[in-house]
Amino acid sequence: MTHPLLDVRNLKTYFYLRRGVVKAVDGVSFRLNRGEALGIVGESGSGKTMTALSILRLVPYPGKIVGGEIIFKGRDLLKLTEKEMRHIRGKEISLIFQDPQNSLNPVFTVGWQVGEAIELHSEGKPLWDRIIEKVINILRGVGIPRVEDRVNDYPHEFSGGQKQRIMIGMSISNNPDIIIADEPTTALDVTIQAQIIDLLKDLRSRYNSSIILIAHNMGLVSELCDNVAVMYAGRIVEYGSIEEIFNDPLHPYTRMLLRCIPRTDIDVDKLESIPGEPPDPVNPPSGCRFHPRCPYAKEECKRDPIYIENIDGHMAVCELYRR
C-alpha cells in the first residue's frame, strides 16, 4: 500500500480554560489519500473545526495541540518550524471557512486579496499585472460573472454565495494538494448550497485535489465524498466508505445522523431531531461519550476502554459489537 497523503495519528487539541480543560480534539486519527474526498461529520461542537485548524497549526489561544502526529507527504507537520509551516499553509493545504461574510477583509478589494494569496507563495516578486491576470482566470473559473469589472470591488459588494466562490478561488489559487472546506455551505441559502457543492465537485474533477469536507449533516458529504469520518465530542466514532456508512451504519450516533439528513427543499439543517444535549465539553461522559444519549447504552459503555469494530477499513467505536 502506498503512503497516504495525509496521516493524522492520535491528534489531541485541548483548550485550557479557567473552569477546566476542553478536549476539543481527543485522539483523532484518519488518513487521506491523494485525490480522495473525505467527509468529517458531527454536530456542532464536536471538534471538526479544531481538527482542521490543528492540521494547519492555527489553533487559537488558549487552545494547544498537545499530542499526536500529522504526517503530510512523509513529514510531521507538528515538528516543522513556523516558517516551514507558512509554506504549507495556502500552498499545499488550504482552508475554506464556514462564514464567507467574514472571511474576506473588508478594507481590501477581492482582486487584491486573491492576488495576495498568490503573491504570498510566489518566488521573487512577480508583476502585479501578471498576478491580476491569474486572479481573473481563477475568479472566472469559480463562476464570478463579469470578472474584469469586479476584481476591484470590495467584499461587501458581493453576495454571500459569491464571496464563498471567491474564497474557494483563493483556496485553489496555488494548486494545493489538500483543500479543507469547513462547512462551506452552512451560512448560505439552500439553493446556493447546491451550487457551491457543484463547484467543489467540478473543481475536484478538474484538479484532482484531495478534499476534506467538514459538515454537520450527512446530506452534504454524500454528494462529494468517498469516505466519511463521524465525529462525536472530540473523537471519531465511525469511519467508512460512503456506501458502508449509508447502507450499513454501525454506530448508533451515525444512524441518528442519517435519520436527520435535511431535505433540500426546506430550510432545516439543524440537528435538532437528535434527542438529548451534546455533552459538556469540560466534563464529558466516561467511556463512550455518546452513552447518555444512546438508546442501546449498557453498563459497559460507561467504561474505558471501549470496543473498536474493524471490518475492511469500516471502523466503529462501540460496545454493541463486542461478542
Partner: peptide, 24 residues
C-alpha cells in the same frame, strides 16, 4: 475570520498584523 484566513493562506505574523489587523 479574515485574519485567520490570511494566516491560513501562509501569511506571517508581522505581515498579518500590519497589513490586515491594523487597517481594521
Amino acid at each position: 475570520d479574515y485574519v485567520v484566513a490570511v494566516k491560513a493562506m501562509g501569511a506571517g505574523g508581522f505581515y498579518t498584523m500590519t497589513k490586515h489587523v491594523f487597517p481594521n
